[in-house]
Design a protein around this nucleic acid. Structure first.
Lengths: 210, 210
DNA sequence: GTCTATATCTAGATAGAC
DNA sequence: GTCTATCTAGATATAGAC
C-alpha cells in the first residue's frame, strides 16, 4: 500500500490546491480528505513544500513532451489547435501552480527557478513554431513585431486560465475556458499570417470562440 | 499625529506588500518597519484585511478617473500611450493587488467582488476606446475579432506587470517594465488599424520597445 | 495615541506506540 | 505504514497601563 497512499495524497492535494488555492489548504485538511492521519501524511512527505514540488515535477514531466515540436512538419491550423488544446488542458489540471506564480516561487524553495526554466523552454518552443511558419512562408513578421508577439503569446499561455477562473469560476468545468484560451492565442497570430492561412485560421477560431 | 500614523502604516504596508507579497508580510513586521508597536497598529486598523482593503480603495480612487475616457476626442497614438503609461504606472505602485488576484479575492472579504467590478469597468472603457477608433474610421474590426481582442487586451492590462516581475525582478525599478507593457498592449491593436494610423502607432511602439 | 505584555489560535511538523 | 498525541513556532489580535 506504500505507493498507493503516496499517490492518493498527491491526488487529493492537487484537487484541493486547485479548488481552494494552495495557501488555504492545510496538511491536516489533506490528511482528513485522504482518510489518513496527519502523522501518516508526514511519513510519506517531509513537508507541504515537498508535496507542491512533487506535483510540479509531475506537471513538468507531462508538459515537456508537448514542447518538443517536430521541426519541419507542415503545421496546419488543426495541428496547432490540437497542441494548444493538450497544453491548456494540462495547465488546467495543475492550475494552482499558475494561479500563485509569484508567491509560490517565493515560498517553495527551488520552485521559482524551475518555473522560470519552464517558461524559457516554452518561449523557445513558441518561437520555434513561429519561425517554422515563417520558413514555410505562411507567416511574415518583422524582428521587432516577433518579440512583441512572443511576449503577448507567453502572457496568454501563462495567465489565460487564471484570468478566466477569476472572471467565471465555473467555466473550467465545461471546457469553455480552454476553448476561449485557444481562440485567444490563435487570434494573436492571425494578423501575421498570409491570406490563405489567415483564412483557414480565422474560420477555425470563429468556429470555436463563443 | 493620528492621521499621520495611519498614513504611515499604509505607506509601509504598501511597500512591504509590493516587495515581499502580502501573504509573507506580518502585522508585526509592518509595525516594526513603521517604528510603532503592534498594539498601536491595531489601534489604527482592526485587522490586516482592513489595511489591504484601504489600500485597494486608494488604488480604486486613483484608477477610476483614468477610465473616464473623453468620448469624442480624436485619440491620437500619443494620447493612448500617455493613458497607458499612467495606468501601468499606477498598477505598478499597487502591484501586490495584481500579483495574488485569486488568492486575495478569496481571503479578504469583499475584495473579490470589488475587483471584478473594477475589471468590468476597465473592459468597458477599453471597448469604448476601440469603438471610438472605429467611429473615426481609424480601426476596422469584426464583432468576433473585437471580443477576442478585448480578451487579449484585458489579459495584458491585468497581468503584464506580474509577468514582467516574474521574468525580471529588477525591471520595475528602471521603468522598462512599464514601457514594454505599453508596447505590448499597443501592438495588440495595431493589426486592426488602417494604414495611416497603423504606421503612426508602429513607429511609436518601435521607438519604445526594447 | 502609544506602549508592553500576553492571550489565542492555527499551521506545520515530530515522537513513540502499535 | 499507520495512528494518537503533542510540540513548536509564528501570526493575529487584545488588555490594560501610561
Amino acid at each position: 500500500m506504500k505507493r498507493n497512499t503516496r499517490e492518493h495524497i498527491l491526488e487529493i492535494s492537487l484537487s484541493l490546491f486547485n479548488e481552494l488555492g494552495e495557501p488555504r489548504v492545510t496538511t491536516n485538511q489533506i490528511a482528513l480528505e485522504a482518510d489518513i492521519s496527519p502523522g501518516n501524511l508526514y511519513y510519506h512527505f517531509r513537508s507541504k513544500h515537498d508535496i507542491v514540488l512533487e506535483l510540479f515535477k509531475r506537471f513538468l514531466a507531462q508538459f515537456q513532451p508537448l514542447l518538443e515540436v517536430p521541426e519541419n512538419s507542415s503545421l496546419e491550423a488543426e495541428d496547432l489547435w490540437f497542441q494548444l488544446h493538450l497544453s491548456f488542458e494540462l495547465k488546467g489540471r495543475f492550475r494552482f501552480l499558475y494561479r500563485n506564480l509569484t508567491d509560490l516561487a517565493h515560498q517553495v524553495p527551488n520552485l521559482g527557478k524551475a518555473f522560470l526554466g519552464l517558461l524559457r523552454m516554452e518561449r523557445k518552443a513558441v518561437r520555434g513554431l513561429i519561425e517554422s511558419l515563417e520558413r514555410q512562408d505562411k507567416l511574415r513578421i518583422t524582428k521587432n513585431e516577433k518579440t512583441l508577439l512572443l511576449n503577448n503569446l507567453m502572457l496568454a499561455l501563462t495567465y489565460w486560465i487564471s484570468y478566466a477562473e477569476l472572471i467565471d469560476a465555473d467555466g473550467l468545468a465545461n471546457g469553455s475556458v480552454q476553448t476561449n484560451a485557444i481562440a485567444g492565442v490563435l487570434q494573436l497570430v492571425i494578423p501575421y499570417l498570409r491570406p490563405p492561412d489567415r483564412k483557414q485560421f480565422t474560420e477555425l477560431v470563429q468556429g470555436y470562440a463563443n
